[in-house]
Simulated assay, not measured.
Amino acid sequence: MPTDDVTSPAQATRILELLWRHHLPAKSSTRGPKPGRTVDAVVAAGIALADRDGIGKLTTRAVAAELGMRAMSLYTYVPSKEALLALMVDAVAAEDAPLPTSAPPRERMIAIATGVRAELIAHPWLLEISPWRQVLGPGRMRRYENQLAAVDGIGLNDLAMDRAIAVLTDFATGNARLAVAAAGAGAQLSDADWWAVYGPELARLVPEDAFPLAGRVGTAAGEHHQAPADPDGAFAYGVATLVDGILADT
């Protein structure tokens, strides 16, 4: 039976070989029927299913159904769901748009965070996969190379370059999580409608003298945004401030 034990040496080798499959020497042809699908097709089907239905609906059986295959046949291509997720994450990273390496350093660094955020909003299921110990494939390795090229030569040492990318990624990820939550809530009730209901009630129930600053600032922000928050505006303000802080140390 297929195993999800990603800690076993055999499974680790299999996942890495799948991730780097296009960089390995071509195998000599073997006898027998040729596979009816490809690993690329399986990965694309997994991404399409997760984009449409969410990662909670991503199972090997569901991916096999997307391809018109029997569930057990899928293991001919990927050994486990965990392996499929690693391949999906790397395939999405491989689609990154180029970074503006000839632009001023500030624009380059903002572009790093903007790209991370856009990817997560386009594929919200990525937010449900732990980034810790994600296996590096060519897609993610190329992304890291491009991000490093975007900050290379601006006065940061190697460790600071890595940390700058990590901080920009973490900020973009946190903001993307809020943006995705806002989009999901908006599908049920628009922010303006929500604020029209809750804003007046909060003003009526919350004692002004108990929370003078929170009441004043929160009301001003809520009325301005007509929403509980403004993820897009917060990102623009935050990433600019963050980048200016990093550049101040160069």
Rank of each mutant, 00 (worst) to 15 (best):
P2W: 04
T3W: 04
T7S: 14
Q11S: 14
Q11K: 15
A12C: 02
A12M: 11
T13Y: 03
R14E: 05
L16V: 01
L16M: 09
L16H: 12
E17M: 05
L19T: 03
L19A: 04
R21E: 09
R21L: 09
H23D: 01
L24W: 06
A26W: 10
K27N: 15
S29Y: 07
S29M: 13
T30E: 14
G36E: 09
R37I: 01
T38L: 11
T38A: 06
V39Y: 06
V39L: 02
D40N: 09
V42S: 02
A45N: 12
G46S: 00
D53I: 01
D53H: 15
L58K: 12
L58Y: 02
L58H: 04
T60C: 13
V63P: 12
A64E: 13
E66I: 01
L67D: 08
L67M: 12
Y77P: 05
V78C: 08
L84G: 06
L85D: 00
M88K: 11
V89I: 14
V89W: 08
A93F: 15
P98S: 10
L99F: 07
L99C: 05
P100L: 03
S102I: 04
S102G: 10
P104S: 04
R106S: 05
R106F: 06
R108I: 01
R108F: 03
M109N: 08
A111V: 02
I112L: 07
A118D: 05
A118Y: 06
L120K: 07
L120I: 03
I121C: 12
A122N: 07
P124D: 02
L126V: 04
P131Q: 11
R133C: 04
G137P: 10
G137E: 07
R140C: 07
A149T: 11
A150Q: 08
V151Y: 07
V151K: 12
D158F: 14
D158M: 14
M161Q: 15
R163M: 10
A164T: 09
G174P: 04
N175H: 03
R177Q: 04
A182L: 05
G184K: 15
A185C: 12
S190C: 04
D191G: 09
A192Q: 14
W194N: 03
W194H: 10
P200T: 02
P200I: 03
L202E: 00
A203T: 04
A203V: 05
E208R: 14
A210G: 07
P212H: 11
L213Y: 09
L213S: 11
V217H: 08
T219R: 15
A220N: 04
A220H: 10
G222T: 00
G222K: 10
A227W: 03
D230L: 09
P231D: 00
D232R: 14
Y237I: 05
V239H: 09
A240G: 14
V243N: 06
V243T: 00
G245M: 08
I246D: 08
I246H: 02
L247H: 11
